[in-house]
């Protein structure tokens, strides 16, 4: 760990100024950043402690719900309205990490967590995400956890989180302050990036921008599921996960908002899948078509080839569960 300066953010605009320079980073729960600093994967000159901003409220906003940037994962997952109106979010959060980590991890920190690619976290290995231009060790290496959708020749890392996958299905919005009293809103669906030829840039945050909260739309009802496939049943990142909000009317699917984790550099959302499903009668054949759409451009890298059939099965299982199709 490199020595660093520690600053406390005593106000939002100040926090923005403090985090704007190269080498400055915001820290909230620290459950990811501290580990990476110990490994020298991250070596900030300045850490800006944003905890004094106290942005941890969870409150109604219109018919929706606003979750403060610093609400802990535990607080969010246990919030009465999250449990009743957005169960997919509660389920996804509870499927992630451990209770101890969730007690510290925050909404904004969770959105900004970095990949768990083995090559990213080992500074003696090539990684274009950690050190642009150094190569990708995973493509010909241990790629079991890696992406099959939206990859590039530069990077096949996955976004590791669960919370954002549910927020993607819910079409939640990230609220971002930029330091001069202005703010902007970015859909969670657009917050994370694909690696392309700049895999070192995880998301659309600009220097000095601070996430202040995430807003959830008015409750959409339906059956809300989060299926996370993993070899051990807790404290493991998803081999593949599916967040699903599915509703039925008159024997036909009336809503199908789906998002996928563990498959790409971002929570994966393909609007064509919802369009295909809505208005149709549920059936295995239909779900097969949905999987075809999801995976039409999927590419495996040897060790992770299994994710392609696994994603198909996880999608089918989730849709069957949501719509009562017996298979």
């Amino acid at each position: 760990m490199k020595p660093f300066d520690y600053l406390r953010a005593e106000g939002l605009d100040l926090a923005s100024q403090q985090t704007a320079p190269d080498g400055a980073m915001a820290i909230a729960g620290g459950t990811n950043l501290l580990d990476l600093m110990k490994l020298q994967v991250e070596s900030p000159d300045t850490l800006v402690d944003v905890n004094p901003l106290s942005m941890d409220q969870i409150a109604d906003e219109g018919d929706g719900l606003r979750i403060g940037a610093q609400a802990t994962n535990t607080a969010t997952a246990n919030h009465a309205r999250v449990r009743s109106d957005y169960p997919v979010l509660a389920k996804a959060i509870l499927a992630g990490a451990t209770q101890q980590l969730r007690n510290k991890a925050t909404t904004a920190g969770n959105l900004c967590q970095r990949t768990r690619c083995y090559y990213f976290t080992n500074i003696d290995q090539p990684c274009n995400k950690r050190e642009p231009g150094s190569g990708c060790g995973a493509i010909d290496g241990i790629a079991r956890l890696h992406a099959v959708l939206g990859t590039s020749s530069e990077c096949i890392a996955t976004y590791p989180g669960d919370m954002a996958v549910a927020m993607t299905a819910l079409d939640a919005k990230v609220e971002i302050a930029n330091g001069d009293g202005n703010s902007r809103t970015v859909p969670v669906r657009d917050f994370h990036r694909l690696p392309s030829d700049t895999p070192h840039i995880d998301n659309v945050l600009e220097p000095g921008e601070i996430i202040t909260g995430v807003t959830l739309p008015a409750p959409v009802g339906g059956t809300q599921l989060y299926r996370k496939v993993r070899e051990r049943s807790s404290y493991a990142f998803a081999l593949c996960s599916v967040a699903a909000i599915v509703d039925m009317a008159d024997g036909r699917i009336s809503r199908a908002d789906l998002a996928f984790g563990g498959l790409a550099h971002k929570p994966w959302h393909d609007p064509r899948i919802g369009e295909l499903l809505v208005g149709e009668e549920p059936s295995l054949a239909l779900y097969d078509k949905a999987a075809d759409l999801l995976l039409e451009d999927a590419q495996g890298y040897g060790e992770n080839d299994f994710k392609i059939p696994l994603a198909r099965r996880a999608l089918t299982a989730t849709l069957c569960e949501a719509t009562g199709v017996e298979a």
Binding site: Q125, E231, Y235
Partner: peptide
């Protein structure tokens, strides 16, 4: 790693003992 022989999953998050 098949190329350079380093151990990839070298912590308790990635070497999966039962929880």
């Amino acid at each position: 790693d098949p190329t350079d022989g380093h151990l990839a999953n070298c912590d308790l998050a990635e070497y999966h003992v039962p929880v």
